[in-house]
Every structure is written in structure tokens, then in C-alpha cells.
Design a protein around this nucleic acid. Structure first.
Lengths: 343, 343
DNA sequence: CTGAAAGCGCTTACAG
DNA sequence: CTGAAAGCGCTTACAG
């Protein structure tokens, strides 16, 4: 059986109170007792029962993370950032995958709250259009930090990139190299970053005297930003618009799907169509042609998100008031072979 | 504040005992009381305090997972398999990344044990050569299942593939298409699957009357199976052996690194050198030339590992004796463009 | 410096 | 059918 304070106390003929205090370095324990207790504890391989500690202290030292997809270069980088930072602070991380489903996301938040995690980190599912489940977290006084796919109206800390600006830069790059008819694969409609990237794309066109043509926007309402999605959109695009010479594609994986389809259909990238992706997945640097894309700092986003959450957990514990933060991380355009100046 | 049993009891003027029983569907509660209690509970949004439940029931409904790398196609697939299966059974998963370090792995096991997780799933770090920390898990009566990178000597359930056979088939494929001088990028020395894959490679050579030449084995002692590792090995190989016409490379990412370097140095794949990878990462299907590789079922491995762990947790709870299982999952050779019959 | 006692919020064996 | 009581293993305010 596992060792308890009681057993140490009995073995030494002292009280449980004193044992507990000695192990927690309370000043009102004699050096001699402290030493004795510590020795006995390590001899017996004593480990505090965290169930009891949790119940007493009302904290679990566990946080919850809900993420749309796990097998995903960007999101797995975020996970790594969160876990590595949490570990440093003595926190463990429970990970759940919402699979882009609002229903699942709701259930998972419920699960985490009933587990009494100390805080929650979330990147919203594409299907999430209602935010009651999120405000519930805050009402329960559980710190919440949203990252990447956020809801603007929810009052909590957020870690994001400037999607509008990044999309603007991506589109501007296509314009700069001479593209005249630029399509946009947008993905789902709802997520804030889908909205912002679209707005950035549109603004870049208008600022540069290019016509904005809604029929050049490809939306995948309930999509999952997959390779297949890219292939389908590419096929459709060739049917609809033979004159497109550039595409700004939401997420590298979709862009790679499109490029694969184009290669199959004999459309040359970048000669016929230049392509800019979004996210800078590792694979984008090793495919051929390599993909011009927006570098999105996943690891840093994860780290920063945990740091903010940690501070809120501490502040709440101290009964300090919490001021929500909104951190915007830098992105940059990585120019590779999929975009080339028109002659 | 959060609602407790006591509050429901007070509100209804009955005992805590009865409230608890009503909510847990004990048969010795009148229908009327049960209904009343349930209604009040849902009205007050009662959620059992899992800290108290844990302490009483001595289980956390949380399992721990230690994995060498997270940003990794195979391992993230395993994670997804584990989480999805665990969720079905009402378990949550804490994930830790060992970063291929034995020291970290040891600390993390300690952490998980002191958190009193109900079970542990692990794939060993490359650096792990000593297994005391693992036997300690078993001594503490915490169910343990190892997957992919296992330690043969540790007595617990395991979920693996037949690495030796898979490597044999990979190497045999190179022989069948006419390769005569086949190198092997092995990665680290210690992991069981590195050993087994090497043995499979060697046996394939010997069975087919090809000379086994130790200088054709490239080991990266403390390696991390990275893209860079593949590039370095490729460079070194060209210096050492100009006559190599095939390579069996441990892990796709290393293979892709090697292919990238070969492309840069003007070595043609598959014309000059045919390459077989291992793992079937998604990116292997979209690069050019696409990579022939061994498909390793990550998602299934994760699912199966959790299923076995779950059964052991249940059996232990029932005081049933536990018989350790060793499950071997199927792999298959996926032939793509990086291997081609010599003329 | 030491320890008895209360309490965190549940579950469950037992009595009535 | 209902409830008083013990106990899971800690922490900590309080008394001595």
C-alpha cells in the first residue's frame, strides 16, 4: 500500500500535524524533527496523495486544452509549447480534440469543468458560432485563454496573430509579382481568422486597384482544411475560372492539395498560377515546388498562452483582479518556389 | 460558489446520504425522492466535486501518456487514437513529451505516479537504456502499457508492429528491384525497434546472398530522427560509398532529409539510388519523388494501447489477475516513386 | 515547538 | 426507505 502521513507519524511517535508541517517546511518545527521526518519520508518513499491535496487546496495543478485537430503541424506545435511551459510551472495538461465540432467542444468543456481543472486553453472549432459554453467557464471562475481561433465577443485573454495583416501581406505579394486575378480558398466561414484573412485579402486587392470578385472566393462551409479540400477546390477553380493567375490559400495543407491536383491536371505552379499558403507547415519546405506561405509561430503561441493562463490562475488565487490581455504575435512571409514574378 | 450535496440536502430538508444515493441511482431511494433530488440538482447545476470523488474512490479517471515527440506525424496519430478511445470510456489523458531523454522520462513517470493517474501509456525515449523507472510503475500497481518503442525485458502489455519483418520486407523490395549495395540509416542504437529493423535488414541481405557490410550502417547515437540527420547521413554516405544503389532509412523524415540533400547534390532518386523509408508520414505521399515506405498504423496503435490499458485498470479494480498481452499490428509496404526497378 | 481538531465533499456500511 | 456516522488523506487555525 501507499504510504501516508499517518504511517510516518506512527513510526516516529509524533502527530500527523507535525509530520505535515515538517514536510512542508513550516518554520515552527524543530530542526531535529524536520530532519527525522524527511528521512523517514524518503525512506518510505512517501508521496503526498494528490487527491487529498486537491480536495484541501481546491486546485488540481492540471489545465485543460481543447484543440480542433491534433495531427496537424501548427496545432501540434502549439501543444508542445503549452506542455513544455506548463511542465516548468508544475502543471500538467489534459488534451482533448474537438474535431472542429461545436457539440464535442461543448461536452469537453463540461468535462474539464467537472474535473475542476485550474484553467482552460482553447482554440475554437470551425463549427462554433455560439459562445455560451465559453462564458460559462468564466462564470465558474475558471481562467480561460483563447488562442488562434478565438471569439472576439468573449471576454477573456487571447493570443493571436494579426490575421488580417498577414493575409494582406500574402495577397500583396501575389500582386507584387504581377498576378491580376487572385482567388482565395477561405475554408470555413465562421472562424474569426477565416473572416480576418478574407478581409486582409480583399483589402489588398482594393488598395491595389484590383477588382474584388466574390466568385473567386472558395468556401468550404463544414470543411476541415484538408488535403482533399484543396484538391476539390483546385478542380472547381479550373472549371469556373480559367484566367486565375494567383491563389491565396488558407492553410498549407489545403494549398498542397491544390498543388497536387494542379500538377495532375497539367497546370504549372508557379508559371501558370502562383500560390501562397498559410501556416508554414514543415512539409511546405520540402515539397516541390516548395510553398510560399505565412509563418505562424505555433510553439510561441502555445508558450505565451500558457504563461497568460498561469498568471491568471495565480492572480485569482491571490484574489487579485484580472485584466484580460490580448497578445498579437508576429508572422512573416516566407517566399519559396510556388510564387514567381510574371514576365 | 459551487454547489455541493449538502446544499441540495438542506434545500430539500433531507440528508446528504439520501441525496448522494438518489443521484447515483441506488435502488433504496423512493421514486419521489429521487425525482426531487435530480430536479434540484440540475436546477442548481450540481456537479460532483471530482477531488472528493477521487479521494473516496481512489481513482482519477485520468491516464498519463509519455511520448518522445509530439510534432511528429506518427506519434500525433497515436495520441489521437488514445484520446479518442479514452474519451469513449470516460477517461482523460495527460500528455508529456520526453524529448527522447531518459532523465526527463524518469521525472515524468514520477510526476504521473504522484498525480495518481489510473494508468500509464509510454513509448520510450531513444536515450532509455535502464528500466527501473518502469518496473516501479508496476510495483506501485499502476497499469502500464508500452507501445512502439518498448523494452522487451519489462513485464507489461505491449502494442507493437513486427519491426523485423517490416524491415525485411522493405529491404527485400530494394533487392527485388535490383539493388546490390544497400545502406541502412538506423538512427539511435538503443531502441528495440532500431535493433529489430536492423536485424530485419541484415537478414534480408543474407537470405538473398548479398554481403552484409557494417560500414553501410549509419548510426546517429543520440539522434532525434530529424530531417537534418537525413541530410548529414546522405552527405556522409556519398563520401564513403559511391557504389550504394539503395537505402533503407529509419523514419520517413530522415529519408526526406536524405532525398533533399541528394537532390541538391545531383544524385537522382530513384535512378541512382532507390530509397525506402519507414512510417508513412503524410508528407511522404506529396513530396517529389514520393517516398516508398512502410505504413505504420499510428491511430490503431493508440486505440489498441488504450483498450488494453483500460481492461487492466478494470481488472485491477475487480482484483482479477492481469495477464499481459503483446499485440502485433500489421504493417504494409507502400510502393511509390522513390524506388524503381534497375534496368 | 507540538498536537488535537475541524473540515475539504464525497461514498457507503450499517442501524433503524 | 432514510439518515447518522465513519473515513478517504491531507492542511491549517488554534490552543497549549
Amino acid at each position: 500500500m501507499l504510504v501516508t502521513l499517518k504511517q510516518i507519524a506512527e513510526q516516529l511517535g509524533i502527530s500527523i500535524t507535525t509530520v505535515s508541517k515538517a514536510l512542508k517546511d513550516y518554520p515552527d518545527v524543530s530542526k531535529k524533527t524536520r530532519k527525522l521526518v524527511r528521512e523517514t519520508a524518503s525512506l518510505l518513499h512517501y508521496k503526498p496523495n494528490s487527491f487529498a491535496v486537491n480536495l484541501r487546496t481546491k486546485e488540481s495543478k492540471i489545465i485543460g486544452l481543447i484543440i480542433p485537430v491534433i495531427v496537424h503541424h501548427f496545432f501540434s506545435s502549439v501543444i508542445k509549447g503549452i506542455i513544455s511551459q506548463a511542465e516548468k510551472k508544475g502543471y500538467l495538461v489534459i488534451i482533448l480534440q474537438s474535431d472542429e465540432s461545436y457539440e464535442l467542444e461543448k461536452k469537453q468543456i463540461d468535462l474539464l469543468l467537472s474535473k475542476r481543472v485550474d484553467g482552460i486553453l482553447i482554440s475554437l472549432a470551425n463549427g462554433t458560432g455560439d459562445f455560451k459554453h465559453l462564458t460559462e467557464i468564466i462564470e465558474q471562475e475558471t481562467p480561460l485563454v483563447m488562442f488562434d481561433k478565438i471569439a472576439k465577443v468573449v471576454k477573456c485573454s487571447k493570443v493571436i496573430i494579426d490575421d488580417r495583416k498577414a493575409a494582406y501581406i500574402a495577397t500583396k505579394h501575389l500582386i507584387d509579382i504581377g498576378c491580376k486575378r487572385i482567388a482565395h480558398f477561405r475554408g470555413a466561414l465562421l472562424p474569426q481568422n477565416s473572416i480576418d484573412r478574407f478581409l486582409g485579402y480583399k483589402k489588398a486587392l482594393l488598395d491595389n486597384n484590383l477588382e474584388y470578385d466574390p466568385s473567386l472566393i472558395y468556401v468550404n462551409e463544414c470543411g476541415d482544411m484538408s488535403f482533399e479540400e484543396g484538391k476539390e477546390n483546385a478542380r472547381q477553380l479550373l472549371k469556373d475560372h480559367k484566367d486565375v493567375d494567383g491563389i491565396f490559400i488558407n492553410t498549407d495543407l489545403v494549398a498542397i492539395g491544390a498543388m497536387t491536383e494542379f500538377a495532375k491536371l497539367g497546370v504549372k505552379v508557379p508559371e501558370d498560377i502562383s500560390i501562397v499558403g498559410f501556416s508554414n507547415w514543415f512539409m511546405s519546405s520540402v515539397i516541390s515546388p516548395s510553398l510560399t506561405t505565412i509563418n505562424q509561430p505555433g510553439f510561441e503561441m502555445g508558450k505565451k498562452s500558457f504563461k497568460i493562463l498561469y498568471k491568471e490562475i495565480k492572480d485569482r488565487k491571490m484574489n487579485k483582479s484580472i485584466s484580460y490581455k490580448e497578445v498579437v504575435l508576429d508572422t512573416d512571409l516566407v517566399i519559396r518556389e510556388s510564387t514567381k514574378r510574371k514576365l
